[in-house]
Design a protein around this nucleic acid. Structure first.
Length: 1050
RNA sequence: GGGCCGAUAGCUCAGUCAGGUUGAGCGCUCGGCUGAUAACCGGGAGGUCCGCGGUUCAAAUCCGUGUCGGCCCA
């Protein structure tokens, strides 16, 4: 047996086990051990390779790792290929920063191919670093073979999926209003937009009516969108007022929502006004107005239907109650414009500058044009008021540039066409927690817009769409397109000679490939996929499908995915969308959604607040197993974690108890040559506590297994930890330790060995998924017949060992014991001193029989000579409590004296007649109430089933043993200070500074000598003793000298 | 602005689904044990169950509303 460290040192255990795992290929051995088990297809959500592991990703990978380990132990062959998400704008932006680029122009000049190579290097370098990070927390995945979204097989998986979507007619091209980053010059997804408070202009503008007097008043924070104004929206249900307002000598007729009139006129500094008419919103519909920048922007929307009032359901009685609408920009405006059949006018290019259609403003950056436009509106007499407004406004998640809304040509997956199918498919997957699916996820899907999958960028999977070189119409490209699904198909249809095994599907290689069919030459569109599309195909990308088909046919769809709640709108969604659109099914059957790691106050960790805790620091300060156990001991289902150093420290303490429980019996077993690997419970004699702890173990195995099956991992872990600390350490070992040092082949010792070994073997397995290092160290120490603890089977409940009645009885015993300890403490009698009796008063038969069944054990534990169980403790004394409400009126001026006489008297005394000032007074029953108290030297404490009374009355015999035990304890302490071996003999000199106490001690000379292994015990401590100390025992000074006779007798 | 989640002891969290005397660990404090010993164990103090309103014989729990924190969306 290896030496076992006295002290649980996570760092040492983990370093040793890391080496052990390496040297013995433990990971491979684990997989081999479960190679023939039923499959379990887990899919790793790929982290993005732009940074390092943080506490949240550490939690995520730890949770996945624990689930995988546990699944394996319950007999599954688990797919554990880790993934990395390696394309996309974030990496492009970081590389641009490194290279000092400011725009797409710089990339083009640098060369697309070289730029993409830089992106690839960046992603790959980060991936390698993240590999190390994840392995540092003990995550066992197939690190030699991760799936990377930039590999040809994976990119093909995306093409394949997209092709299925296209075949179902769900790929469309068209103008949509999207969020555009003018610096990156690409559309970005809504979830790539971050919001922040910014100060923008806030202007009120008068749109002069064409066929009647007055103006419509609108409000906007984006003056730059006014050139594209196409219509004005009003609320159908709102009421509008025509007001004639005066300012100085001027007069304006304005149309404003009734609720807004005062406010708007205040902003415009009008002196006075009159309401001339009141109209419903619907009455304004069809009114025409003149574009306020008609001169500056000659190409302004003047087509059929433009420049009119329409109803729009997004209009509220806010600001003016009339909304300036530009379908070429805003998303709501765009949708309403489509409904109304209006043309889309957008005079802004992808880089945020006005095109020629912008007239006077052509070439100017839109946000820079705000001032000019406001000034021109003013000059045109259209500006009613101007101020600023601070509100949340979106900016690019990567480069922080303020986004702009533009209607541009994009490619879409028409999610809205398959909404019903999506909603049905939600039901196919079971979620933990379920509310996340039925509330959050369902809400999101019900509102999901079409998925814009095109990005006008470089580092991504090129969209496999080829369109005719000379297209006639931009509008129906999706009807003329060719979509390529595999490399093989590309080779077959391409005009060029391509080696399918060799081709890099990235830009710019694929850009040069053309397809000519039926006389038409097709060229690839230049866009790449939104990076969310990459990970959306992970369930088959993990399996290298369609390059390889066998694994897909056997495994798909995924049995389980595990991510944090931000992925509801991310990966949980993108996969369902893609799976449904491409293959008609949910690509996963079960979802475990965990939370975020916040700081101890529940606030998000951030650099600027300075509250970031790194996994490295946590591992440094506590250890990997403690960190893992800490993270997994909290709710894993949808709830955030408030990381707290003290909590992590407590976990170290708890694991230390596990360590001590494990190591405690090993010394004795070793001395006796007992092999804890194969405990045989029939070999020795089992006592009640053995049977009890074995029964408890079965309950714990059952509860833990059920919790794992529900992914209530915190419950599973805490059940085991509670069992070890409360049942095994606190109770079982305390009750059993003496049996450890019985001599020879004592049957009860063997029974204790077998019991502890059985418990330990099971607990090691139950802890292995969460604290793999510690569990491995324990397993290799006591057994080691398998290469790794993870090759073992998960423990199963042994019904023969269950005894529910005993578990119930023992629970009662523990309550009674606790109450007795409390009574002892209050009675001032420490446990080392025996008491004469303990009385348990209860009217509950269950409690009475439990105490009677376990009386011997209880007697030992509370150190009493006797235990009585009674339904009523008849020694209680009733003390009088005078009721002044009755006594006062009856005795008047003498009441005070009566009270003093009655107070504290016993019932017997009161009933015998109380004397006050020499006279016996008559007391009615109502004048005195009684409270029951135990007699002197007896202390009672309530517990759930009754009351426990401890009689601390001393007798010479009890006192004698008490002193003897105290002396033994002091000598043992001195042995420890001398660092003596258990076997070493000593000589003891003992001088007690009190004759009575000396007599007590003397009565137990034999006991003392035996307990402390003293060869001789004299009354005179020698000045030459190896250790000489004076102790105070219950106010008596005792001088003790200890000398070593022989270091070792053996 | 909207959806979802959370708020319980100084701290971290159970308990909320299914209403019935709020619990644990840590910390604090007092103590015990002593062949697990730089280990282990017990007692005590400590609560506006986030605020307000409602339903009910009874609300931490159900309903409404507000505040704060988190995620997502606009």
């Amino acid at each position: 047996m290896d030496d076992v460290s006295d002290q649980y040192s996570p760092a040492d255990v983990e370093a040793a086990i890391d080496d052990y795992w390496d040297d013995h290929d433990a990971y491979e051995a684990t997989k081999a051990a479960h190679a023939d088990d039923p499959t379990f297809f887990f899919v790793d959500g790929p982290p993005y390779t732009s940074g390092q592991m943080h506490l949240g990703t550490a939690w995520n990978k730890t949770l996945k790792d624990a689930v995988i380990r546990q699944k394996r132990m319950t007999g599954h062959q688990v797919t554990d290929r880790p993934g990395y998400d390696m394309h996309g704008l974030p990496i492009e932006v970081k590389v641009e920063e490194e290279l000092g680029f400011e725009s797409k122009q710089d990339i083009e000049e640098y060369g697309m191919e070289a730029f993409i190579e830089e992106c690839k290097t960046f992603a790959e370098d980060n991936r390698v670093a993240m590999d190390d990070d994840f392995q540092s927390i003990g995550a066992w995945f197939d690190w030699d073979n991760p799936y990377k979204t930039i590999s040809p097989e994976y990119m093909e998986a995306a093409w394949y999926g997209f092709k299925q979507v296209a075949d179902r007619g769900l790929v469309e091209q068209g103008k949509r209003s999207i969020s555009q980053c003018p610096r990156c010059e690409t559309g970005i997804a809504n979830n790539e937009v971050e919001y922040d408070q910014v100060e923008d202009p806030s202007i009120y503008v008068k749109f002069p009516l064409a066929d009647r007097e007055g103006s419509l008043v609108i409000w906007t924070t984006t003056p730059w969108t006014i050139p594209a104004n196409t219509f004005v929206g009003v609320g159908e249900e709102l009421t509008y007022q025509k007001v004639r307002a005066t300012k100085g000598g001027d007069e304006d007729v304005l149309y404003i929502a009734a609720e807004c009139v005062d406010d708007v006129l205040g902003k415009g500094r009008y002196d006075d006004y009159e309401i001339e008419a009141e109209l419903d919103g619907s009455e304004l519909v069809g009114w025409e107005y003149d574009h306020p920048l008609a001169e500056e922007v000659p190409d302004y929307p003047s087509f059929e239907g433009a420049g009119e009032v329409y109803t729009a359901d997004f209009v509220e009685a806010d600001r003016t109650g009339l909304v300036h609408s530009a379908p070429g920009h805003g998303e709501e405006d765009f949708h309403r414009g489509q409904e109304l059949g209006l043309d889309i006018f957008c005079p802004v290019a992808g880089d945020g500058t006005y095109t020629d259609a912008g007239g006077k403003y052509a070439g100017q950056f839109v946000r820079d044009a705000n001032d000019d436009i406001t000034a021109d509106l003013d000059a045109n007499g259209a500006l009613l008021a101007e101020e600023t407004y601070t509100h949340s406004y979106g900016h690019c998640w990567r480069c922080d540039t303020d986004i702009i809304q533009l209607a541009t040509d994009q490619w879409f997956i028409s999610i809205t066409d398959i909404k019903d199918e999506l909603l049905d498919n939600i039901e196919e997957a079971e979620w933990h927690p379920q509310w996340a699916r039925d509330n959050r996820f369902r809400d999101f899907i019900e509102n999901a817009p079409d998925w814009n999958v095109s990005r006008q960028r470089y580092w991504g999977i090129p969209i496999p769409i080829w369109v005719p070189e000379d297209v006639d119409s931009e509008d129906d490209l999706h009807e003329q397109m060719i979509v390529i699904g595999t490399r093989e198909e590309l080779v077959e249809r391409a005009d060029q000679d391509i080696d399918p095994d060799d081709i890099d599907l990235h830009r710019p290689t694929v850009d040069d490939i053309t397809i000519t069919e039926e006389g038409t030459t097709y060229r690839r569109i230049e866009d790449v996929f939104d990076v969310w599309l990459d990970s959306s195909v992970a369930t088959w990308g993990t399996l290298d499908y369609p390059t390889e088909t066998e694994a897909f046919d056997e495994l798909w769809p995924a049995d389980l995915i595990i991510e944090a709640h931000d992925q509801t709108r991310g990966w949980f969604w993108s996969q369902l969308g893609m799976g449904t659109a491409a293959l008609g099914e949910s690509p996963y059957n079960e979802v475990l959604m965990h939370g975020f790691a916040n700081d101890k106050h529940g606030r998000k960790m951030s650099k600027s607040v300075g509250n970031i805790v790194t996994p490295e620091e946590a591992i440094d300060r506590a250890g990997r197993d403690p960190l893992r156990a800490y993270l997994l001991s909290h709710d894993q289902q949808g709830v955030d974690l408030s990381f707290d150093w003290d909590g992590l420290g407590s976990m170290v303490g708890t694991l230390n108890i596990c360590w001590n429980v494990f190591r405690f019996p090993l010394t004795y077993m070793d001395l006796d040559g007992y092999d804890p690997a194969e405990p045989d419970l029939s070999e020795g004699e089992l006592t009640t506590v053995d049977e009890w702890v074995l029964s408890r173990l079965q309950s714990v195995i059952e509860e833990t297994s059920e919790a794992w099956a529900d992914y209530r991992i915190d419950d599973a872990l805490n059940t085991v930890l509670d069992f070890v600390t409360e049942d095994v350490s606190r109770f079982y070992i305390k009750a059993t330790r003496e049996r450890m040092w019985e001599e020879g082949d004592s049957p009860t010792k063997l029974g204790a060995y077998a019991t502890l070994a059985t418990v330990t073997n099971a607990v090691i397995r139950l802890l292995a998924p969460v604290t793999p290092y510690m569990a491995e160290e324990m397993y290799q120490t006591i057994d080691g017949s398998e290469t790794t603890v993870h090759a073992l089977d998960w423990p199963e409940v042994d019904d023969d060992l269950r005894d529910p009645q005993l578990e119930t009885d023992m629970a009662v015993l523990r309550d009674v014991e606790e109450a007795a300890a409390n009574a002892r403490q209050r009675g001032g009698r420490k446990l080392r001193w025996p008491v004469s009796r303990v009385v348990v008063e209860t009217d509950d038969d269950e409690v009475a029989s439990a105490v009677e069944n376990l009386a011997d054990l209880l007697g030992e534990r509370v150190n009493t000579r006797a235990i009585d169980v009674v339904s009523e403790f008849d020694e209680l004394i009733e003390y009088a409590d005078p009721q002044m409400g009755e006594i006062g009126p009856a005795f008047g001026g003498g009441a005070q004296d009566v009270m003093n006489a009655v107070e504290g008297a016993t019932r017997d005394e009161v009933e015998a007649g109380i004397e006050v000032n020499g006279e016996t007074v008559d007391l009615d029953d109502e004048m005195v109430e009684y409270r029951k108290e135990p007699p002197e030297h007896v202390t009672g404490t309530d517990f759930e089933g009754g009351t426990v009374y401890v009689d601390t009355t001393l007798t010479d015999e009890l006192e004698s043993e008490g002193y003897a035990r105290d002396v033994i304890r002091r000598i043992q302490e001195m042995r420890k200070e001398l660092d003596l071996d258990v076997e070493s003999e000593i000589s003891v000199g003992l001088a007690v500074d009190d004759d009575r106490v000396a007599g007590f001690v003397d009565e137990h000379r034999d006991l003392i000598s035996e307990e402390v292994r003293a060869a001789e015990l004299t009354d005179a401590p020698s000045e030459d003793a190896d250790r000489l100390e004076t102790w105070e025992i219950e106010d008596t000074e005792v001088e003790i000298g200890v000398s070593v006779i022989a270091e070792q007798t053996a």
